[in-house]
Structure formats: C-alpha cells, structure tokens
C-alpha cells in the first residue's frame, strides 16, 4: 500500500518536472519577444504566432493534407518495399549475395541529394516528392529488416523445425513476429524522417504543403508564418509518432521491457 502511494507520488513529481522545462523555455521566449528590442522579424511573440494561426485557419488544413498525402503514400510504399526486400535478403543467402553490396552502396546516399535527380526524372509535381520520401523510408527499413532477421535466435528456428514447421510456417510464425519490434522501431524513425524529406522536397517547388508555408514565410519576410509551418510539422510528426507508439504497445506486449 505504502509503495503504491509512493509510486503514485513519483509519477506526479515526474510530470511536474517535465512541465517545468517547457514553461521555462516558453517564458523566456515570451519575455524576449515582448519586453526587449529584438525585432519581431527575428523573433515573433507567441501571441503573433497564435494570430497568424487564426489568420490562415482556412488555408492550413489544405496545406496539412497536401503534405500528409505525399508522406502517407511515399512512406507506405517505401516501408513496404524496404521490409519485403529486407526479409528476402535476410532470409535467402543467394538473394543476399546478389543484393547486399547494392544496398551497402545505396545506403550512404543522402536522399535529399537525390531530389534534383528525381525532379529531372519525374517532374516537379507530387511524383518526385513521393519518390524521395519512399526512397528515404526504403533505405532505412531495408537495413533495419536485414539486421532484425540476422538477430533472430536460431534456437527458435530449430525449435519450430523440430515441431514440424516448414519454411512458410517458420516465416509466418517465427521470423515475422520475432522481427516485428525492431521493424516498428524502424518505422517510427522513418515516419519522423519522412516529414523532413517532404519539406525539403517541397522547398524545390510546390503550391501547397508545410514546405510551401515556410518558403512563403521567408519570401515575404513573415517569420510568424514560417514558424507556423514549422510548428504544424512538429505537431503532425508528434501525432503520427504517438499513433505508431500506440499500435506498437498493442502488438508487442510480449517483449520483455524494463519498467519505465
């Protein structure tokens, strides 16, 4: 009983401490932007940013949707291809011998450096943006999946075989469940990266999206609009991350964890 109570208190102390940091930074920002001579051009105040949100309230959903559409498609295609290819490379020695050097060569290529090439190939529209995002997701997940497959304890595969499992059964009942936690961790990284890649691709030219808001903010020296764009990306990315975390907790209940 006593212990439960202590844990309960600890939780609130932790929450309070978490909030302190945020309040501190927010307070410094508030003071600096309102009570010093730093021009608003460099540091708009929180109120201005809120006003800017309201001013563009009508356009904001459209920008969010444009970007999320690119991210959702690019991320899904890239992740799926990455996981499938990683499974094949991890599973089959022959495929590994053929494809692994290629993957090792492509792996260090920064996706952002390829944006101009993709624009050249696929035009300035959605296609090239989606492909950059897909490429970034693919690279991370291929490597991640190969590693995850390599980490599967052969003990489980031997055990499954000794219980009568064939190749398909092993894939379905051992390999895929065993690598799921690592794959989901990879997906979380990839999801966060996707936002960055989407914005970078949008900087190269677009009529809508987070990147558009930021570029417009810079072009018209509207720092508040620029920051609204940044905030929107941050919030969207956080929400996506929270969703994936929720799913993760549901399907990896079996993973041994240290208490947080």
């Amino acid at each position: 009983m006593k212990k439960t109570k202590r844990l309960y208190n600890e939780k609130y102390v932790k929450r309070a401490q978490n909030v302190i940091g945020l309040i501190l930074v927010f307070g410094i920002w508030f003071v600096l932007s309102n009570y010093t001579d730093i021009p608003n051009l460099y540091l708009p105040s929180p109120q201005e940013i809120a006003a800017c949100f309201v001013k563009y309230a009508e356009d904001i959903p459209g920008h969010i949707l444009s970007s999320l559409y690119r991210i959702a498609i690019g991320f899904s295609i890239g992740s799926l291809l990455g996981i499938l290819m990683g499974l094949m490379i991890g599973w089959s020695k022959n495929i590994r011998n053929i494809l692994e050097p290629l993957v090792e060569f492509i792996r260090p290529m920064p996706p952002l450096a390829l944006i101009p090439l993709f624009i050249l190939w696929f035009g300035i529209g959605n296609k090239s943006k989606i492909i950059v995002i897909a490429f970034g997701a693919w690279v991370v997940l291929v490597v991640n999946t190969i590693e995850a497959v390599r980490n599967v304890d052969p003990l489980y595969i031997d055990a499954a075989k000794s219980l009568g499992a064939g190749t398909g059964d092993i894939l379905r009942t051992v390999l895929i469940p065993a690598i799921t936690p690592e794959i989901i961790a990879g997906i979380r990284v990839v999801a966060a990266n996707s936002f960055g890649m989407c914005v970078a691709a949008e900087f190269m030219g677009t009529e809508a999206g987070f990147g558009y808001m930021i570029i417009e903010g810079r072009r018209f020296i509207m720092t508040d609009l620029l920051l609204v764009g940044v905030l929107l990306i941050t919030i969207s990315s956080m929400l996506v991350n929270a969703c994936i975390k929720l799913i993760e907790r549901r399907i990896t209940r079996w993973v041994p964890r240290r208490e947080e």
Binding site: Y156, L163, V174, A178
Partner: peptide, 17 residues
C-alpha cells in the same frame, strides 16, 4: 531436424511472442 525427434533445449526456447 524432424518432428519425430522432439527437442527440449538447454536455453529457454518458448516463443516469446
């Protein structure tokens, strides 16, 4: 490896998932 020969390993081998 064949299902005719059941195995109990030295390590814990229950599938954790």
């Amino acid at each position: 490896i064949s299902p005719k020969m059941g195995m109990v390993f030295q390590k814990y081998a229950a599938f954790p998932w």
